[in-house]
């Protein structure tokens, strides 16, 4: 392999690695949005997921426990979102923001209780690469796609599965109909509340897992605010991907690319102050939203609660 090829492979490998939290959080956002639930608590849920994923792995000595704990708590946040908005019909933005606050507070509270305040936080092992026998031997592609950690594989398979579920099954037809016109769905016997609860909970679990990925792959420990806006970026990404699983996957690759590129340029040192490179993902987010505002159709009832007995003009 020549120099350029090696550079490319290592860059592509890192992009695949960095795409995981974006994919998980955005697919979670997309699921809820397809039934009309617009969550803005991603950042908070990811922070709790990172915090508890780390603590779970630290306390029980296994990353799997950390992931399960993060998913469990993420699911609880999703449940809370569904309960307050679907059952109690409270404003989705306000509840989403409140849950964001709670997640933020809990994310630093738990480590303080469990570990105490310390300058030298303990480390957990990072997620190992699991080469897939045979496939990982393919030159170039094998290294990029088949010699990664399990969550990279999971993110890819999840995106394929969601695409199939949404567009190729009658459950998907029903699920999408709830976000487009809940009253019509309800009038044909589709259970709007169940759909919203399930997607909110599963979505929350994915966001929690997305958070847990960060200490497990990047840092080996939890630091305050370590999600660094990835939760918010996930929302933009979901719009950018037109609320479709396959396009969201591509969008996640784009954002991961920007993130890795900013790091690479910083390391290489090109005379631009590093602070400006750090802003790249956020500027990319804004640009992407401008692009999405022109071409993307979001679910028609996104962000709106459904009340069967609400009287409308007849």
């Amino acid at each position: 392999m020549d120099q350029f090829q090696m550079q490319f492979v290592s860059f592509a490998r890192l992009v695949m690695l960095a795409m995981v939290p974006y994919v998980l959080a955005s697919q979670g956002t997309m699921l809820g949005g397809r039934t009309g639930l617009f969550s803005v608590s991603q950042e908070g849920i990811m922070l709790v997921g990172a915090s508890l994923g780390f603590l779970g792995a630290y306390l029980y000595g296994s990353l799997v426990y950390g992931m399960l704990l993060a998913m469990f708590v993420g699911g609880l946040f999703g449940l809370a979102l569904a309960y307050f908005t679907t059952t109690l019909k409270m404003n989705q933005f306000v509840i989403g923001l409140s849950l964001f606050f709670i997640g933020l507070g809990l994310s630093t509270l738990f480590p303080k209780i469990v570990i105490g305040v310390t300058l030298q936080p303990p480390l957990i092992p990072t997620l190992p690469d699991v080469p897939i026998p045979g496939l990982s031997q393919i030159p170039i592609l094998g290294d990029i796609f088949f010699n990664q950690n399990v969550l990279v594989y999971f993110a890819i398979l999840l995106s394929i599965f969601l695409y199939y579920l949404l567009y190729k099954t009658s459950i998907g037809l029903e699920l999408r109909s709830v976000g487009e016109n809940p009253k019509a769905a309800d009038s044909l016997g589709v259970n709007v509340s169940v759909m919203r609860y399930v997607t909110a909970i599963v979505g929350g679990m994915l966001m929690g897992l997305a958070g847990a990925y960060l200490p497990m792959v990047y840092t080996g420990t939890f630091t305050q605010g370590m999600v660094q806006g990835r939760g918010w970026i996930a929302i933009a990404l979901t719009f950018f991907g037109g609320w479709s699983p396959h396009l969201i996957f591509l969008g996640a690759l784009f954002f991961a690319g920007v993130e890795i590129l900013a790091l690479r340029v910083q390391v290489a040192g090109v005379g631009v102050p590093y602070q400006f490179l750090l802003t790249l993902p956020y500027i990319a987010t804004i640009l992407v939203m401008i692009f999405a505002s022109r071409r993307v159709r979001a679910p028609a009832f996104l962000g709106q609660n459904y009340d069967r007995e609400k009287r409308t003009l007849s």
Partner: peptide, 27 residues
Amino acid sequence: WLLYRFGINEILTTVMMNFISFSLIDY
């Protein structure tokens, strides 16, 4: 302006501007 011109959700863009400002003050 992004909201005015393109109708972009202000929640997201205002949050992004926070993150950008962190780099700015650091600089």
